[in-house]
Simulated assay, not measured.
Amino acid sequence: MTTVAASNNARRISRGFAGAFLLAAIWELSARGFNLPAYVLPSVSSILSGMITDAGKLAAAARFTATEALAGYLLGCVIGIAAAVGVSMVPRTRGVVMSVATAINSVPVVAYSPLVLLWFGIGMTSKIVMVAVAVSFTVFLSTLAGLDRVDRRSVDLVRSFGAGRMAALWRLRLPTALPLIIAGMRVSTVRSVIVAIVTEMLGAHGGLGWVIYQAVLQIDFVQVWAAIIVASAISLCFFGAISFVEQRYIFWK
Rank of each mutant, 00 (worst) to 15 (best):
R92N: 12
M51P: 15
W210M: 07
A168M: 05
L172W: 03
S192D: 07
V131N: 13
A31P: 14
R191D: 10
M201K: 14
V187R: 08
T189C: 15
G50L: 06
A5E: 13
I13G: 04
S188E: 06
W252E: 07
Y249S: 08
I212A: 02
V245Q: 05
L141S: 07
G184M: 04
L236N: 00
A18P: 01
T125W: 06
Q247V: 08
A61C: 07
A71G: 10
A25F: 14
T3I: 10
G123I: 05
M98I: 11
L23N: 00
T138C: 05
V222M: 02
I122E: 04
E246S: 15
L174T: 04
V139L: 03
N8Q: 14
I219G: 00
M98Q: 13
R159Y: 00
V190E: 10
S160I: 01
S14N: 08
G76Y: 03
G206P: 02
V155P: 06
F221M: 10
G19R: 00
A233Q: 05
F34E: 03
Q223G: 01
A82P: 12
S113A: 15
G123M: 07
I242N: 03
A177Q: 12
F251I: 15
P42N: 06
V150N: 06
S136E: 06
A10P: 09
G184D: 11
V139R: 08
L58E: 05
A111S: 15
I197A: 15
G162T: 05
L147W: 04
V222C: 01
S99F: 14
L118A: 11
L147Q: 08
E68T: 06
R159I: 01
K253E: 14
G240M: 02
T199I: 04
M98Y: 03
H205W: 03
L208S: 05
D156M: 10
T189D: 09
V90H: 10
I228E: 07
G184T: 09
R171F: 00
A226F: 10
G76W: 01
I229R: 03
V78C: 12
R173W: 00
V135R: 13
A103M: 12
V109T: 13
V109S: 07
M201W: 12
I194S: 14
V224K: 01
I128R: 06
M166Q: 02
H205F: 08
L144W: 02
L172Y: 04
G123Y: 05
V116S: 09
I81Y: 05
R12W: 03
V116T: 11
G95I: 01
G121S: 07
L157N: 03
V100G: 03
E28K: 02
W225R: 00
Y73A: 08
R92I: 03
L144D: 13
F244L: 13
Y249V: 15
F140D: 14
E28V: 10
A38R: 11
R186W: 04
R15A: 13
M89W: 00
A134E: 06
L58H: 05
V109F: 06
P108W: 00
V97A: 08
K253H: 13
A103R: 01
A10H: 04
V222G: 09
D156H: 04
V87T: 14
A20R: 00
R186E: 04
A227M: 05
D156E: 14
G95Y: 02
